[in-house]
């Protein structure tokens, strides 16, 4: 846990030091004017700091939400991205931005993204609440592609010719050139989400023994459900509203961390949050170091790592069910 915190902190600091102009404090040839030291502090405060903070909070949210969902649904494939929760949040955010609502009420952006997530989690509960792993994943895939299609539709309907290019941002996610305004906009909701998720930790421990045992241990199941659903919606929804859909973090991280904490959900939650933050910060640093002529989206990197991992998990599950 301490080591993990140190790793996250280090990555956070590296994230502040790495920029598109190389590692360390940037140097520039001068033209007419000398480069003002104020410009350096401007870069640190207004470009790299919000980027690092968002990398941390989004990674932590996804890791935490993934761990909680896997614990609550007792389903190793549960994750905000796979379940369509992130995509629904993106749909909410896209409607808020491209209809102009968020111009009038800035708060509408995170709020509509959160409502998008909430609706989808409730829907999933209705459709696949009693079904097995496969039902949940299939319902998630269906809802995810439906929300993706609706997002693209909204963007295509926009009169702004750039809107259709922005589909990439919403589907793959990015934290490039975000500002402190985005941090302030999403921060409070993310914090609420974290509190709700962490509050469910004890119930999750009890749930590992099965629902009936959990109830007999004094767990109020409907309270747990409320905590998990609203916590996920708040944290993932607010993050997606400012950075688009970033997949697979919530899937990989809990699986990697579970053996380290002795398979105990309440210990897995903070560990997954930190590991998620580390993973996303790391991916974002990679995005900046691998410079292509057009920017590589953050979601591409996480999917490149997460996609194969997802397949690996499915294979492992199949082997288990065969034995």
């Amino acid at each position: 846990m301490i080591i993990l915190s140190l790793v996250t902190l280090t990555l956070f600091l590296i994230s502040l030091l790495v920029g598109s102009m190389g590692i360390g404090l940037p140097s520039a040839h001068t033209t007419l004017n000398k480069v003002d030291p104020k410009i350096y502090s401007l870069i640190l405060q207004e470009i790299r700091l919000p980027r690092a903070i968002l990398g941390f909070t989004i990674g932590a949210s996804l890791g935490l939400a993934g761990a909680t969902l896997q614990g609550y649904l007792r389903n190793p494939l549960a994750e905000p991205g796979v379940m369509g929760v992130s995509m629904a949040a993106a749909l909410g955010a896209v409607i808020a931005i491209y209809t102009g609502i968020s111009l009038i009420i800035p708060m509408a952006l995170p709020l509509m993204a959160i409502s998008g997530s909430l609706i989808v989690i409730f829907l999933l509960q209705l459709i696949a609440g009693s079904g097995g792993t496969a039902t949940l994943i299939l319902a998630g895939v269906a809802i995810s592609s439906l929300c993706g299609a609706l997002t693209s539709l909204v963007l295509n309907l926009s009169e702004n010719p750039f809107a259709s290019l922005e589909i990439v941002f919403w589907l793959l996610g990015s934290i490039t050139d975000r500002s402190m305004a985005h941090v302030w906009l999403s921060g409070p909701f993310v914090a609420i989400g974290w509190l709700l998720l962490v509050a469910s930790a004890r119930d999750l421990d009890a749930l590992t023994l099965g629902e009936e045992t959990a109830v007999s241990l004094g767990v109020n199941l409907s309270r747990t459900r409320l905590l998990v659903i609203s916590g996920t919606a708040f944290s993932v929804g607010a993050c997606t509203a400012v950075a688009g859909v970033i997949g697979f973090v919530g899937l990989i991280v809990p699986h990697l961390m579970r053996p380290l904490v002795g398979y105990q959900p309440s210990r897995l939650l903070p560990t997954s949050a930190l590991a998620g933050a580390s993973l996303l910060l790391c991916a974002d640093i990679m995005v900046r170091l691998l410079s292509f002529s057009t920017e590589l989206k953050l979601g591409v990197v996480t999917a490149l790592i997460g996609g194969p991992f997802f397949l690996f998990l499915i294979l492992k599950l199949r082997q288990k069910s065969m034995t």
Binding site: I97, E159, F162
Partner: peptide, 9 residues
């Protein structure tokens, strides 16, 4: 390009 709202604006 900011007559209609988008991330661009």
């Amino acid at each position: 390009w900011n007559e209609s709202p988008a991330l661009v604006s």
